[in-house]
Write a protein that binds this DNA or RNA. Sequence first.
DNA 1: TCCATATGTAAACAATTGCTGACTTCGATA
DNA 2: TATCGAAGTCAGCAATTGTTTACATATGGA
Lengths: 211, 211
Amino acid sequence: MSDMDVTAVKGSDEPDAAARHRDADGTRQRLLQAARQRFAMDGYAATTVRDIATDAGVNVALINRYFTSKEGLFEACLDRTVKELGDRDTDASTVDQIVTVMLEQMLDTPADGRPLQLLLLLRSTGEPEVDEIRRRTLRDFSERMATAAGWSPQDARTGDLVLRAQLVLATAFGILLLRASTALEPLRSATDTELRGPLGDAVTALLSARS
Amino acid sequence: MSDMDVTAVKGSDEPDAAARHRDADGTRQRLLQAARQRFAMDGYAATTVRDIATDAGVNVALINRYFTSKEGLFEACLDRTVKELGDRDTDASTVDQIVTVMLEQMLDTPADGRPLQLLLLLRSTGEPEVDEIRRRTLRDFSERMATAAGWSPQDARTGDLVLRAQLVLATAFGILLLRASTALEPLRSATDTELRGPLGDAVTALLSARS
DNA sequence: TCCATATGTAAACAATTGCTGACTTCGATA
DNA sequence: TATCGAAGTCAGCAATTGTTTACATATGGA
């Protein structure tokens, strides 16, 4: 997470090592970014506010100033994930598109921490209220996926499609965990090309219309 | 904290509230059982040695006496899981049998904490040495599964079967997490009967011989 | 019976945790 | 320029953490 080398324009609001001082919004973003990374990778309890502050290159006290508490910072991270997850992929209407969206979510695009976004939904603070947000988000997500796969609440024949969509979700989470957290080979080093085939088989088997 | 909730501990001799005094081996077992439950459900960092001791109905200091440290206790839990995982399912040679074994591992058999056993392999202490044990165990497990599905290291056509087996593993872990830790409905309440169909479809699609 | 030792208990240790308050410093504005 | 508020720093608090130490007590063999 090196600094952007935007040295061309003087007086720009880029977070230059010298110019980023006294930039409250920039500081908030740096904290959010560092927190997402830590929370997603190591979990809530294993992450220290001092870790986050150090990663962000920011004083520890500012976490409490800008986010009230460690838990407040986590909720802010969660909010962003929930928001971005709500915007995205409302267009996926076929199983193939679902596979594409899933791969897109799970692929390493180092610029934004996309795969970490999802991983965050598996991390718990222990507070029931925050956990409920996670649960509802996952519920919504799986129901949208089920809908894209043909689910309609009235149709009894598609009754288990939500469950099946949640199995797809479970697969995605398992892959993310084994890759990012456990670093299991060869899964960890598998490219999206290598993953697309097997993952497509699994998702298709789970979501395609059956007799 | 009443003593009622610790009587669920499986002991060779009955751990009666009166009779269990001065039973070193029984105390070790009570600690191991409580620790597995906590570590698997809440993770390593979120679990307190005092939590474990209270669950086990045992003095905190005995953790260090019998297992040296919190991490030593975790390793002892891990050893047991690795051992039981090594013994089991060396006989699964067809995809159907793999599904059966997976369901057996994931089903709630309250007596022993089978699903928690697997979940433990996702929990990290942060110590690289302990993590390596987890990694190797998962690697072995997935290679055994791939072998059962027809993998041979020489045959290039089965080259991605280990990766596919790890996707099966990922699915299992995801399901366990979403059920036990996140309590996502309807997945959490799904019976093994309801799970067998979808899970069978996914595993078959991942591991069956393809053209 | 008596004592050595295994087992368990209680209290407190040092380190780390999240968090707070008083302080300084910068920058915009009157 | 003087000033006031926002942004950041610093030191330290109170609580919790894993661990250890000193002590109590039960148990079995001499």
